[in-house]
């Protein structure tokens, strides 16, 4: 049983870590602001969420589990709102999304 939990937790952690790395790559490679905040959104919500779930499987006692659940809920609430506020602020200050790239260099 222990080994199963350890393996499942490791899978979650690795997947979360992988998504964080892809989010980082996304920030560097994506062409404009709106696609980049999509990349950070993935890192924040899914990457961090999977890592937290992976950690939850390994907790020694219930109190730590409750704390991790609270952190997960907070992340799920706050990160989308932060991303939304960022996008809205950018749109308001006149940054228009890049709808079609003129040349195929970026991306």
């Amino acid at each position: 049983m222990d080994i199963v939990i350890a393996v499942v937790s490791a899978i979650f952690l690795l997947l979360g870590g992988f998504l964080c790395v892809t989010g980082g790559v996304g920030i560097l490679r994506f062409p404009d602001f709106y696609t980049r905040i999509h990349a950070t959104g993935v890192t924040d919500t899914l990457g961090a969420g999977l890592i937290l779930i992976g950690l939850m499987l390994q907790v020694p006692d219930v109190l730590v589990l409750v704390k991790l659940v609270i952190i997960l809920l907070m992340t799920l609430f706050i990160n989308p709102v932060a991303t939304h506020a960022l996008a809205q602020a950018a749109l308001k200050s006149g940054l228009s999304p890049l709808l079609q790239s003129k040349n195929h260099k970026g991306g």
Binding site: F77, I78, V81, H84, A85, Q88
Partner: peptide, 12 residues
């Protein structure tokens, strides 16, 4: 105008 931000802030 910032309805979503206001709602979540009020909750938090």
């Amino acid at each position: 105008q910032h309805f979503i931000v206001r709602f979540v802030a009020k909750m938090l």
